[in-house]
Design a protein around this nucleic acid. Structure first.
Lengths: 261, 261
DNA sequence: CGGGGTGTTGACGCATGTCAAGTATGGTGG
DNA sequence: CCACCATACTTGACATGCGTCAACACCCCG
């Protein structure tokens, strides 16, 4: 009894942006600037938005599919996944998210999010009012273009996942997923010398790859035996990225990461 | 010897918009108006664009992955599929397209398309210069929003396909695919009393569902035996849409079709 | 007529799923 | 500091959906 967490998305502890950690605006600007030019006026517009911060615990629901959200979320810290449910209870994770990722940008123009979002492990979320964000997108065409481009990259990601799930076997599928994670984490400074925190449980990996959890387990053991990927608890290590990329048939073009490199 | 079709996308017969059939502008407006309000100024801006028309034959390449396109395409007639290739030659179709669909909108803001597009059966494509389209999107915020929304729906589609391929068995997967086709074809007036033209070969269905062609064949026979779907040559018939939707666990919300219904 | 693209069928194998039990692990309260 | 519990991970035996291979039949189109 009592209200279940599931009944109310974003019920975690809330606080306004006064903290010392980077807030919504800083992270949003940093992310968008990796692919779109943003002038000082645009940056100021972001900074002027009123943001809220929420702490969530493991397996907390952040956004609920089909339920219109008045706020637009960005992951400040931790990991999250967007997922869709089937009537029989099976779950497909359609994207994994790391610090700096927008979580529900599609809901800016569509009536309701088409997938739920929940946390893997404890996480921190920042949000701004949907209308506020829509307003500055209307006032600053460069911001609209940047956000649009961000959603296009998100879509490209989904298409790559389709290729991954539809055509690759379990071994390559997981290798590919971890190649993507490594690169995206590196882009936000969370990939440290081949290792990174990774609180997604094997059940979560199973939901993301369309495999069963026990098969995920066995394949992870093979990857470890082959020296490609060491996953222990919440810690991942990739001794040889090139080898892992080869095993996963990984080509990072679809991520559209900073082309300055 | 001679140049292969594959070497040059969009090499089909070309003609300017003088024909009596609906052109780029009419179709684009009709499509966008199903989800976004467009004033007369916006409609006029579309109508003023210089469009080209191309006829392509079966299995023709229309857009090539990774190759920047100076033109933005829309399918006027026939069927097409967007697909990505793997090194070993296996192919994943990431979306199917019917008359009235945009084929490479993501390339408007991204440097190059992340998937190829080719025709299933003979088809007709209309295109406008990418820069022209970008220009009117910049001049008319409502057009930009409409196009953005269109790409968001495209992305929602990809996520639904992820769910389909990742979690459903072959039987439900194909049922779901045909439910989607039926609804989208109906939206453009090509679904006639439970039947429609469908020139996608079983190999194409296999590439779209992540199944092998022979398994697709067997499952189609089961669907036919169960009275859910009759596929013969280029002709599809759905005697009982409700039953097919039940078999596929189909919920049309993700298509974001005209909410006036 | 001929031949490429198709659809169909059967025999067989394997990647992956399922079921079930057992072992860590880690946070929490006594 | 320990007992406890939920969550996570691991393992083995077994089942099966789907893939593979290899023919063969079909058609439309040229």
């Amino acid at each position: 009894m009592g209200r279940r967490d599931e009944d109310a998305p974003l019920t975690g502890r809330s606080a306004d942006g006064g903290s010392s950690r980077p807030g919504w605006a800083e992270l949003a600007i940093r992310r968008l600037a990796t692919h779109s030019p943003l002038g000082s006026a645009e940056r100021a517009a972001f900074a002027a938005l009123a943001a809220q911060h929420h702490d969530v615990t493991a397996r907390d629901l952040i956004v609920r599919e089909g339920e219109p959200t008045p706020r637009c979320c960005l992951l400040v810290e931790g990991f999250a996944g967007r997922h869709k449910l089937l009537a029989d209870g099976s779950r497909q994770v359609v994207s994994l998210h790391v610090a700096g990722d927008f979580l529900d940008l599609p809901a800016l123009l569509l009536d309701a999010p088409d997938a739920s979002v929940s946390s893997f492990g404890p996480a921190r979320v920042a949000s701004v009012a949907r209308d506020d964000l829509a307003d500055i997108a209307e006032s600053y065409p460069e911001i609209a273009r940047a956000l649009w481009r961000e959603t296009l990259i998100d879509a490209a990601n989904a298409r790559e996942w389709l290729l991954n799930i539809g055509q690759r076997d379990a071994y390559a599928r997981l290798a590919h997923l971890f190649c993507e994670m490594a690169l995206r984490l590196e882009a936000v400074g969370l990939f440290d010398g081949g290792a990174f925190a990774f609180p997604v449980p094997q059940q979560g990996l199973a939901d993301a790859t369309g495999l069963s959890p026990v098969h995920v387990n066995r394949v992870l053991q093979r990857l470890r035996a082959d020296g490609l990927l060491h996953l222990r608890g919440n810690h991942a290590e990739i001794p040889d990225r090139r080898a892992l990329a080869a095993a996963g048939g990984f080509d990072p073009a679809y991520l559209h990461l900073d082309r300055r490199r």
